[in-house]
Amino acid sequence: MPELIAVHGDITRQDVDAIVNAANNAMRGGGGVDGAIHRAGGPDILRDCIARFPHGLATGDAGWTTAGRLPARWVIHTVGPNHTAGERDRSLLVSCYRRSLEVADELGAVSVAFPLISAGVYGWPKQDAVAAAVETVSATSTRVAEVRLVGFDERTYRDIRDAIRVLG
């Protein structure tokens, strides 16, 4: 099990091997975390997305690109379920975390930072999104040594921190 750390801050400023992007199926940039990562990382990320994912990416899957100008080496893109649009299968959300860690292992990443996937504009209930993140990361066999769960706002950070404490 990797060391699980709650962080309050901006995912684009995390100095880790890989940051995880809560992407959309098209893999062409978007709003929220996706837009912030593309803006901060620059056009190399989009160019790599177009080359690696010409037909996009399925919900629950993950793949990687360069991190462009970000402090990380790679961006691991994963597509969470859109709860607001009726995608309510929790196994797809769990798959995002598992698949991202599998990709991190393929890359040899030792440290990875995740946002809270699907909890923003995709409307996944925040407490369940936190539980899915903490439970899945802690139960997934991986060579990643450190996983940061990054809460952009204070409330999300506290929720993540508290869930990690309960885990023990």
Score class of each variant (00 low, 15 high):
residue 144 V to Y: 03
residue 77 H to L: 05
residue 87 E to N: 07
residue 53 F to H: 07
residue 5 I to D: 05
residue 117 I to N: 02
residue 138 S to H: 13
residue 150 V to Q: 07
residue 110 V to D: 13
residue 42 G to S: 12
residue 63 G to T: 09
residue 96 C to I: 09
residue 132 A to E: 01
residue 120 G to M: 06
residue 56 G to T: 09
residue 165 R to V: 12
residue 122 Y to M: 12
residue 95 S to R: 11
residue 45 I to W: 06
residue 54 P to G: 15
residue 97 Y to R: 05
residue 76 I to T: 08
residue 145 A to L: 14
residue 17 D to C: 07
residue 43 P to C: 12
residue 60 G to E: 08
residue 143 R to A: 15
residue 141 S to V: 15
residue 122 Y to K: 02
residue 72 A to G: 06
residue 107 L to D: 04
residue 74 W to Q: 06
residue 74 W to S: 08
residue 157 Y to A: 11
residue 29 G to R: 08
residue 159 D to M: 06
residue 147 V to Y: 01
residue 44 D to T: 09
residue 132 A to S: 02
residue 31 G to H: 01
residue 154 E to G: 11
residue 101 L to Q: 03
residue 34 D to M: 07
residue 137 V to I: 15
residue 117 I to Y: 02
residue 54 P to C: 15
residue 164 I to H: 00
residue 146 E to A: 13
residue 120 G to T: 09
residue 85 A to G: 02
residue 85 A to D: 12
residue 22 A to C: 10
residue 53 F to I: 13
residue 141 S to I: 10
residue 157 Y to M: 10
residue 129 A to K: 05
residue 129 A to Q: 10
residue 95 S to T: 01
residue 70 L to C: 10
residue 50 I to A: 09
residue 108 G to C: 12
residue 61 D to V: 07
residue 153 D to S: 13
residue 28 R to H: 08
residue 52 R to I: 07
residue 162 D to N: 14
residue 95 S to M: 00
residue 149 L to Y: 05
residue 117 I to P: 02
residue 138 S to V: 12
residue 11 I to L: 04
residue 165 R to E: 15
residue 75 V to D: 00
residue 40 A to I: 06
residue 69 R to D: 14
residue 8 H to V: 11
residue 31 G to C: 08
residue 59 T to S: 13
residue 79 V to N: 09
residue 133 A to D: 01
residue 161 R to Q: 13
residue 99 R to D: 00
residue 150 V to K: 08
residue 4 L to N: 04
residue 167 L to D: 08
residue 13 R to C: 11
residue 14 Q to T: 03
residue 16 V to N: 03
residue 161 R to D: 14
residue 163 A to D: 00
residue 5 I to M: 11
residue 66 T to Y: 15
residue 23 A to Q: 05
residue 66 T to Q: 12
residue 119 A to P: 03
residue 88 R to G: 08
residue 88 R to C: 13
residue 98 R to Y: 08
residue 153 D to R: 14
residue 6 A to N: 00
residue 73 R to W: 04
residue 76 I to V: 14
residue 79 V to E: 05
residue 90 R to I: 14
residue 38 H to L: 10
residue 17 D to K: 01
residue 25 N to D: 11
residue 77 H to V: 14
residue 140 T to V: 14
residue 27 M to C: 11
residue 95 S to G: 15
residue 29 G to N: 05
residue 129 A to S: 13
residue 45 I to G: 00
residue 135 E to K: 06
residue 103 V to E: 06
residue 79 V to R: 09
residue 46 L to D: 06
residue 138 S to I: 13
residue 118 S to I: 00
residue 88 R to S: 10
residue 126 K to T: 15
residue 51 A to K: 11
residue 11 I to C: 01
residue 77 H to N: 07
residue 151 G to C: 12
residue 8 H to I: 12
residue 161 R to P: 02
residue 28 R to W: 07
residue 126 K to Q: 15
residue 144 V to W: 00
residue 81 P to R: 10
residue 121 V to P: 02
residue 79 V to K: 04
residue 104 A to P: 01
residue 167 L to I: 01
